[in-house]
Amino acid sequence: MLREPLPGRPLVRITAAAAGLALAAAGCGTSARGDTGTVKIGYFQGAVAGPEAIVAANGDLAGKVPAKIRLQPIDSGVAGMAQLRAGAFPFVSGVGNPPFTGAFASGTDVKAVYVESIDASGLAVNDRIKAPGDLRKVGVLVGSTLDFQLRGWLKSQGLTSKVQIASFASEAAEAAAWKAGKIDSVYISRSFLLELQKHKARVLVGSADIAKLGFAAVNMLAVSSAYAKQHADVVQALVCQISKAETLVKGPQADKYITPASKFIGVAPADAIAATKSYPYIPASEETGWLKGPDGTSASGRLAQNFKLTADFLVTQGRAKSVPDTAEIARHIDPAFWDKAQSGGCK
């Protein structure tokens, strides 16, 4: 998506006091040998506790990062990448492929160093839609990773010229339109999808199936190239601990690690636990294939292929002038930190 917000992580309002508490807590328990000060990370609030929140909230993880972690809420990937470019923070966690690709295509010097997850979303339809050919008009969050996935799927089904896309400024408005019967199908993130299913919506196709066609909506840890060069130790530690966090929230100690992270995302611990445990984080066994291909280069990895398709989408949307060549795309993917993590670099 444009990360408005992470599918499965609906944007929530929190009080200024709560936000201040979260930011203050981010620095607690994070002292580490060789501390390099404070590192700020742009992140999304909502039902799912992102790996950056898990790390920041748990001292045994945060303490291995040689900087104090401060999380700064963002409400869209485009805004987050603009803030990164302006120097507000060097990292954005959970940024989707359209805003990331759009950023580097327009000159932002940024690198994807870890692929965190694939969006969990689906095409919700009413009982009048029995098959793809019955679709006439589909609602979607404009310019988002969902928009990217929907258009890619429609193209694969030969339906591009047959189905009208209704653009919405928010997923809440999209869901409300479906409930009111103003539209019979919407491609929407999981949190809204689950709600629509309570109103008898049926899922015609899911994001996992669309991802297999090459149109994956991926969420990444992005870092300013300049920061990565100057503070490689911090980037390395964050990649290591974020990967560990994603493993822990799927294991027997999940509740222990998710509960303190709930203060960052603005939901009750029980809600955060339920949403986070089932969220589709990418398994460590699949991470390498995203960052680089069989020949060992980022140019042939799944992420580079995804960025090319994403750039095609951005050009058709008028949000990018041209599709970057393979070498330019590869320059913004750095598998070195993950490679080091796999060869003992996290010890």
Rank of each mutant, 00 (worst) to 15 (best):
L61H: 06
K162C: 05
R128E: 15
F168G: 04
L11T: 12
A57M: 07
G158D: 09
G27T: 09
E4M: 07
C346R: 04
Q305E: 12
Q305T: 10
Q157N: 01
Q72N: 14
T316A: 01
K212D: 10
V203F: 09
Q45M: 09
E4R: 03
S262C: 05
K162S: 10
V115K: 01
S262Q: 05
G152A: 06
S76F: 01
A82H: 02
S76D: 00
K130Q: 10
D127Q: 15
S106W: 02
A272W: 10
E4Q: 12
Q230E: 12
K212W: 03
W290S: 03
V92D: 01
K64I: 14
G206C: 10
L154T: 11
K321S: 04
D271E: 14
F104W: 06
S207N: 07
K200Y: 13
V323Y: 00
G289Y: 08
H231S: 08
E171L: 02
A270T: 13
K68I: 03
L291G: 02
V203D: 07
T297H: 13
S300H: 14
D339I: 11
I329W: 03
T108R: 01
K340F: 10
L6I: 11
D255R: 10
A79V: 09
I329P: 02
P10L: 08
I118F: 14
V113Y: 05
G63Q: 07
A112M: 06
P324M: 01
T15V: 09
P90S: 04
G266E: 02
T247E: 15
I265V: 13
A330C: 10
T297Y: 13
V92I: 11
I188W: 02
G133S: 10
A82P: 00
V142N: 13
F307K: 04
Q236F: 06
S224T: 05
V249T: 08
V115F: 02
L193A: 09
A327N: 10
T326R: 13
S243W: 11
P51E: 00
K40D: 08
A24G: 13
G34Y: 07
V267K: 08
V95R: 00
P283D: 06
K347W: 12
Q342T: 12
P280V: 12
I74D: 01
A22V: 04
A336C: 11
A49K: 05
F104Q: 02
L84C: 00
P269E: 01
T36A: 15
P294C: 06
V48E: 07
A105F: 00
L2Q: 14
G107H: 00
G345M: 09
G206A: 11
G8A: 08
S225D: 07
A82G: 03
A327R: 12
F89T: 01
G143Q: 02
R33H: 15
A268L: 13
F168I: 05
Q253E: 11
D312N: 01
V92K: 03
P269I: 00
L84R: 02
A341M: 14
S262N: 05
L196G: 09
A16F: 05
S31N: 15
N306S: 07
N97W: 03
V249N: 07
F44Q: 04
A327P: 13
V125K: 11
A270Y: 08
L159N: 01
L2V: 12
K200Q: 14
P5I: 08
A275M: 05
R136G: 12
D255P: 14
H199K: 15
A208G: 11
Q236N: 06
Q236K: 03
K40T: 04
V65S: 05
Q164R: 15
